[in-house]
Amino acid sequence: MGEELKAGCARPTGGPVGQDRDAATENKPLDDKKEERKMVMVGRKAPDFTAPGYHKGKFVEIRLSEYLGKWTLLCFYPGDFTFV
């Protein structure tokens, strides 16, 4: 899954896709209504995003919505080469 990326010196970035994009990329204060809509909650849609990554020898660009139709486990962690 995902599109292969060429590895260059320009570092590829991803980020939220769609409605969440503006709020997440700019540091402007949100009004209460917007904040409520954006909150991650069980029973609500997982915010879509794109991100570059490494997968079995290749660099790829992944979009979460490509995984619709499948059970997906999304795991954040503090950092590579840390201990736990």
Partner: peptide, 12 residues
């Protein structure tokens, strides 16, 4: 260390 279970409809 956040872990999210997302169903086939994209719902957490």
């Amino acid at each position: 260390r956040g872990r999210f279970i997302i169903d086939p409809d994209g719902v957490i």
